[in-house]
Amino acid sequence: MDTTALRDAYRTLLDAAATVAGSEAGPSPVPPPGEWSAEQILAHIALLNATTLTTVCSVATAAVTPYDNRTSADTWTLDRMIALSGGAAGLRDRIAAQADALCGLAGTLSAAELDTPVPTLLLSGGALMLDQPVPLGGLISGLADSELPGHTRQLLALLPDGVPAAT
């Protein structure tokens, strides 16, 4: 699997996270009501990465593990991840290491492994988005094409007015 798009999506996300951390609003600007803070967004991504890495490793060992994103949206779990990682800077470091691991592993998977159907449950904002098998390659591509860019935009939306959002 060519992981160029995934690496680029992670780089763009981490650049946005660094921009937000260095903005006038401080390392974790206050989000609008009902939205996540920068640290919560990064914790969510770190949890998704861990879930994705677990799934990739399970497929590589021929023991498919379901992909379920519910814990990555749980507030208590997000707060625990923030604490365990040491805040925004630690989360950025964790995400960078996870990105290297995921891109490295994904680049070694065979076509058969990438085509392996993975039972998938995806929720967003408490609403069911998907409950069906998805090929492993589709889960990985979904990170690059949708999940990471969406959270990059979410991070940049936390910047105060007038602060350049270019990353």
Rank of each mutant, 00 (worst) to 15 (best):
T61L: 14
L159Q: 02
A106N: 11
P31G: 03
A63K: 14
P29D: 00
L105F: 05
P135L: 01
A89C: 07
G142D: 01
L139A: 07
G162D: 00
A89H: 05
G125T: 10
A60W: 00
N69G: 10
L143P: 06
E24D: 13
T4P: 05
S85I: 03
P133R: 05
Q40E: 11
A144I: 11
T54I: 03
R11Q: 15
T71V: 12
G90T: 09
T152L: 12
V59L: 10
R11K: 14
S58F: 03
D93L: 15
G90L: 07
S37K: 01
S72Y: 02
N49K: 02
T4V: 14
L159M: 10
G26D: 06
P135Y: 00
L114C: 12
D93R: 03
G34S: 13
V163L: 03
C57R: 15
T120E: 01
A38V: 05
E35D: 14
A18G: 06
G104C: 13
A18N: 09
A157W: 00
T120Y: 00
D74A: 09
V20Y: 01
V20N: 00
L6G: 07
G125I: 01
T77N: 13
R153Y: 10
I82H: 09
A97C: 13
E35S: 15
S58T: 13
G26S: 04
G26E: 03
A18H: 02
